[in-house]
Design a protein around this nucleic acid. Structure first.
Length: 483
RNA sequence: GUGCCUGUAGCUCAAUGGUUAGAGCGCCUGACUGUGACUCAGGAGGCUGUGGGUUCGAGACCCAUCAGGCACCCCA
């Protein structure tokens, strides 16, 4: 015997029992999305690598399965949103807005496998294209909850943040865009590792040029860029592996080298953000504190009003307020978010669902006009893992047992007739004895056994045995028509 | 990507560094030529995840690798 071949790491076999449970949950989710007017769509699993390079965020970009084939740079989709908006730009710009689209299918991410974390998993989700804040945000959030309710998930927690609010404050403080970005996506780190860790990271990625790298005096931008490229090349730094073009990298580096020191603003921002980040909890408690903080800083925030409006609408949607929690540190790794972001956890810390608003993505993917959009996705396997068990199947299952080989053809005929009456019917293919067939049927939980032998064949009948009650009677073939 | 735990039959697990690696369950056959959950008898199934090393001798010890799990990181 040759050695068995293992499944690829992070990929798993879903056996019938689990598949049944997953399909049940999937149907519940899809039914809910459809019931809210979201039209199912299907899109390719393989996309151009480039689709994911720009807006995905470095963390997730590193997890994309990429490959070259026939001279093309391709990728397995790590999420649906980019594909969906690509398809929107390609095929759906003539559709009336808002457009409600639902999807469901496999995505791939190269991550360390764990329970509830696989390299291939199934996302079920929606995008509400052309739906502006705050109503579309509240609709999406409420829908996410409705799906979990339908799937029989209880005790979940909805955590809400708002990237727009953070961005606004940073703009108000006069920080440049690149610095804003790093700060926004460092907020989670700030809570876990502290202010100093973020300051250090900021130093790495923004503030300090590589030690010893000084621009020669008197170069114009083009000359300086050429000089930098030469330096980087001499240092054997390969720029082609990153998500930006070498020209881009050099341009940024150049700006960095020539930029004035932003340290005072950065310190102020860090201070504000760390205090903002400590405000977590029920909206009724946290929102006033956020308002205070904004007022104290002498800043304005339209996003704050938007967040309040979303939460108020959420109550109108009937979402249990006790489940909702504000966490302004929430920084989802997908960098295309611009406003609301949210995550839903089950009681045991497992993330079941995530989403948010991304108003710039349509433009970034070449749409004719900017279109606001919001969406979310469930991790189907995770939802299924915490969902209520599906009800037992109600199918009537029968096994047809031919007594001898001569009865096999007749057994097939009986099985056909049973199927016409809605039975799930199988015929023994192993030529087993009746006793063995009975034992087998009992073990599998089959409801009925049809025994066909020479006698039954002669009379156009079969013996119909109810496995549970052990009642047995002879049934004429013609009789089945009334079942 | 980081740290830790674990890989022995289809499954759950045994086996002081020392014969030919065992048990339970499951599977197959028969007792039982047309009637199930019990029983009895027999059978199949293993290069101990893989590859190196230490040793007279390795399932056990060491290294690597692959896979699974747990905690991070991140996400669904």
């Amino acid at each position: 015997m040759s050695s068995p071949i293992e499944a690829v790491r992070g990929m798993r076999d879903v056996l019938p029992d689990e598949q049944r449970a997953t399909a049940y949950v999937r149907a519940a989710l899809e039914r809910t999305l459809a019931g809210h007017g979201y039209l199912p769509i299907d899109l390719p699993i393989v996309e151009q690598r480039e689709l994911y390079l720009r807006k995905l965020g470095e963390e997730l970009v590193g997890k994309v399965y990429e490959f070259s084939f026939g001279g093309r740079e391709l990728a397995l989709r790590p999420e649906w949103t980019a594909s969906l908006l690509r398809a929107y730009v390609a095929n759906m710009q003539d559709q009336p807005l808002p457009l409600r689209i639902a999807y469901s299918g496999p995505v791939f991410r190269y991550e360390r496998p764990q329970r509830g974390t696989y390299r291939q998993f199934t996302q079920v989700g929606v995008e509400l294209v052309g739906g502006p804040a705050p109503r579309a945000d509240a609709e999406a959030l409420a829908l996410a909850c409705a799906g979990l309710d339908a799937a029989g998930v209880g005790g979940y927690r909805v955590v809400v943040g708002h990237i727009g609010l953070i961005r606004e404050l940073l703009v108000g403080l006069g920080l440049e865009e690149r610095t804003q970005g790093v700060l926004v996506w460092s907020m989670e780190r700030m809570r876990v590792d502290g202010l100093d860790a973020v300051r250090a990271r900021l130093g790495e990625t923004i503030a300090a040029p590589p030690p010893g790298l000084e621009l020669p005096a008197g170069l114009d931008d083009d000359q300086a860029a050429a000089w930098l490229l030469g330096m980087l090349d001499a240092m054997r730094i390969d720029l082609s592996t990153g998500t930006r073009s070498p020209q881009d990298v050099v341009a940024r580096l150049l700006r960095k080298l020539r930029r004035g020191d932003q340290q005072p603003q950065i310190d102020r921002a860090l201070d504000l953000l760390s205090r903002l980040g400590q405000l977590r909890g029920a909206p009724a408690e946290v929102l006033p504190l956020v308002a205070d903080l904004i007022a104290q800083s002498g800043l304005q925030s339209a996003a704050y009003a938007e967040l309040r409006a979303i939460l108020a609408l959420l109550a109108d949607h009937g979402v249990d307020q006790g489940r909702v929690e504000i966490d302004l540190c929430l920084g989802r790794g997908l960098h295309y978010y611009t406003g609301l972001i949210f995550e839903i956890y089950d009681g045991d810390q497992m993330q079941l669902c995530g989403g948010g608003r991304y108003d710039d993505l349509v433009s970034a993917l070449g749409g004719r006009q900017p279109v606001p959009a919001v969406g979310f996705a469930y991790g189907l396997e995770r939802v299924a893992a915490v969902a209520a068990a599906p009800p037992p199947p109600e199918e009537r299952v029968a096994l047809v047992a031919p007594v001898s080989d001569e009865d096999y053809a007749y057994a097939l005929d009986v099985a056909r007739r049973l199927r016409l009456r809605g039975f799930i019917a199988t015929v023994d293919v192993r030529g087993r004895t009746l006793a063995t067939n009975l034992r087998d049927a009992a073990r599998r939980g089959v409801g009925y056994l049809a025994v066909v032998g020479a006698e039954e064949r002669a009379q156009a009948s079969f013996v119909w045995r109810d496995l549970a009650s052990r009642d047995e009677r002879r049934v004429a073939l013609g009789e089945i028509a009334d079942w």
